[in-house]
Amino acid sequence: MVVCFYCYHSGVGEKFWAQIERSSGELKKVRVDCTGKLDILSLLKPFEDGADKVIVLGCPNEECHNLTGSYKAKKRIQYIQQVLEDIGLGKEQIEFITVPRWVGVNA
């Protein structure tokens, strides 16, 4: 299972979801107000619950509604990547994907 946190302000449309679903199989979508609100624990929890991978979809740094949300999320993801590497899961099990803001539902 892949858990995908996505920013409320980002423009993730149907096509984008379809693309992710094709490549990941079972997908659990979790909408957040801003990826900067995701703390380390909330990003680790899915692995505890059996997720194979966690994806965070956030806005470009310079377009973040809360100014530094994406920047903070990336920092936390880097921390978790190191943890996952240390416990042998591999750092590729969590990633941040930048998506443009409000590109429309068909993007």
């Binding site: 380390i40 680790l44 692995f47």
Partner: peptide, 17 residues
């Protein structure tokens, strides 16, 4: 407290794996 929770989570993930 937060660091304790994170450590607990890491240990559980490792053992589960």
């Amino acid at each position: 407290q937060k660091d304790v929770e994170i450590m607990g989570s890491i240990i559980r993930i490792d053992r589960k794996r």
